[in-house]
Computed example of a mutant assay.
Amino acid sequence: MTGEFKETPIGKIPKEWNVFELKEIANVKYGKAIPKKGGEIPVIGSSGIYAWTDRPLVEFPTLVIGRKGTAGAVHLVEVPSWPSDTTFYLEFKKDIDIKYLYYHMSFFKLSGTHAQTTLPSLKREFLEHYYVIYPPLPEQKKIAEILSTIDKAIEKTDALIHHYQQLKNALMQRLFTEGIGHTKFKPSPLGQIPAEWDVVKIGDIIEFAQYGLSIKMYDEGQYPIVKMDSIINGKVMPVNLKYVDLDEETFNKFKLEKGDILVNRTNSYELVGKTGIFMLEGDYVFASYLIRLRPKKDIVDSAFLTYYLILSQDRLRQIATRGVSQANINATNLKKFLVPLPPLDEQKKIAQILMTIDNKIEAEIKTKEELEKLKLGMMDKLLTGKVRVKVGEKSG
């Protein structure tokens, strides 16, 4: 390893590395229409596995590349498979580590040009002329091993996130029907609930329900305005923000306070009713596709009510008016929506249990984000030879 670099059509690489067009490494083949559904062989489309069939089109490990739809998406397939007719697959004719090539094509991304249809499309000749940086085979394997180690850590983190989410969902179902430590239950309009609980309308436990501001938004301005895409995992987050300029009276009317609950009142049917609690520091207002609920703090805990509305999104959809492409929940119907009402101290205990799990989920999501940043940085360094690997050492 001399540390010297040379110029290539795709930038500087180590002197002893090569660059090939993909057609020099593999034959680019068209996938085929699925013969019939049912079986144990995965059918790979441009977005990944979408069906199963009874016999493979490809017996060998390959990369399947989206041709239409998600054009340019790359999928590593190490088992017999059936690439669909919206994809290409590779039939290798030169020694190359398939995982190395997968990481290379994932980092140096392909893109589709627009065909005559409405779907983006990738042409075979474009793919055949794709440049591949080609280190010696032992280095390819080592690079792939290092990046695979990071991927395994990401997969473990994903599994933990899934586990905690499943646990949270199960606890929500149990806590909002059985409560904590109850032995006596009664029937109610919401099903069986603890005998000490009540069932009330949202309108009875809030100060008010209010539509947000319908006003032109800007990239800069006096006050950040929360939109429906700022509600993430049950919380209002300082993301996807726009800004508005307001007089003092209007600002005071729409200023969000900690503990306010925002419900997405207009969206696709799948997303309408999405709910989040506002707990941010600073001066924020909210946009017109949201309804702000201000809970009566001596009656209901904001976090408890938020979690219940998240659990009840399917029921919230049922009170929505459906249009051609959107659904709408109006404030009048929302105030009639029934919710369980435990004693206030039990509400807070239920919310605290769920917040503890949410904190674990958020910690794992942060870990995953850090691992993904690490992977991206390592791909940039390893795939270009800015950092050279030592062949023969195990990756940690």
Rank of each mutant, 00 (worst) to 15 (best):
Met172Asp: 07
Asn330Leu: 03
Leu371Asp: 08
Phe5Asn: 02
Thr275Ser: 04
Thr384Phe: 06
Gly377Gln: 12
Lys386Val: 13
Lys253Val: 07
Ile133Lys: 00
Glu370Gly: 07
Val200Glu: 06
Tyr134Asn: 01
Arg174Gln: 14
Glu16Trp: 14
Phe208Thr: 11
Gln166Val: 12
Leu316Ala: 01
Lys373Ser: 08
Gly234Ile: 07
Lys258Tyr: 10
Glu281Lys: 11
Thr367Val: 15
Lys109Thr: 15
Tyr89Glu: 07
Arg124Ile: 11
Ile10Lys: 03
Ile44Gly: 01
Glu364Arg: 12
Val387Gln: 06
Lys36Ala: 13
Met172Val: 06
Lys390Thr: 15
Arg265Tyr: 12
Phe278Asp: 05
Arg265Leu: 07
Thr177Met: 01
Leu262Ala: 04
Glu364Lys: 10
Tyr284Asp: 05
Glu16Tyr: 15
Ile143Pro: 01
Leu371Ser: 04
Arg317Trp: 12
Pro61Ala: 03
Ile154Asn: 02
Ser47His: 12
Lys152Ala: 15
Leu213His: 04
Gly38Arg: 06
Tyr307Arg: 06
Thr62Asp: 02
Pro135Gly: 04
Leu316Met: 02
His114Tyr: 10
Ala115Val: 15
Ala320His: 09
Lys156Arg: 12
Pro120Gly: 07
Pro56Met: 09
Leu316Gln: 01
Ser325Ala: 11
Ile49Gln: 06
Ala73Ser: 12
Met172Gln: 10
Leu167Thr: 09
Pro9Thr: 02
Thr356Leu: 14
Lys142Thr: 13
Val387Pro: 00
Thr53Lys: 00
Val339Leu: 00
Asn27Met: 13
Gly212Trp: 02
Gly72His: 10
Ala144His: 06
Ile25Gly: 00
Lys375His: 09
Gly38His: 07
Leu305Pro: 00
Glu24Gln: 09
Lys15Ser: 15
Leu57Glu: 07
Asn328Met: 10
Thr117Cys: 03
Gly3Pro: 04
Ala287Val: 14
Lys29Ile: 15
Phe278Pro: 08
Leu374Lys: 10
Thr250Glu: 12
Tyr289Cys: 03
Gln116Cys: 11
Lys235Arg: 12
Thr117Trp: 05
Tyr269Pro: 09
Lys227Asn: 13
Arg317Asn: 06
Phe107Leu: 05
Thr149Ile: 10
Asp229Ala: 10
Lys386Thr: 13
Leu311Cys: 03
Lys184Arg: 13
Glu178Leu: 06
Arg174Gly: 01
Thr62Ile: 04
Glu91Ser: 11
Leu256His: 07
Glu91Ile: 08
Gly38Met: 06
Ala331Leu: 15
Asn27Glu: 13
Thr117Pro: 02
Asn18Ala: 12
Tyr134Lys: 02
Ser188Val: 05
His129Arg: 10
Leu290Cys: 03
Ile13Ala: 00
Ala327Glu: 07
Pro194Gln: 04
Glu91Tyr: 11
Gly38Leu: 11
Lys216His: 12
Val64Cys: 00
Ser47Gly: 10
Ile361Ser: 00
Leu241Asn: 02
Lys168Gly: 06
Thr86Leu: 12
Lys142Tyr: 10
Ala287Thr: 14
Gly11Gln: 08
Leu57Gly: 01
Leu90Pro: 04
Lys141Pro: 05
Ile231Pro: 05
Leu383Thr: 05
Lys255Gly: 00
Ser214Arg: 14
Leu175Asn: 01
Val324Gly: 06
Arg174Phe: 14
Pro343Gln: 04
Arg315Thr: 09
Val199Thr: 09
Leu147Lys: 06
Phe20Thr: 05
Glu91Leu: 10
Glu362Arg: 11
Gln173Pro: 08
Pro187Phe: 07
Asp219Ile: 08
Thr62Pro: 03
Leu316Phe: 03
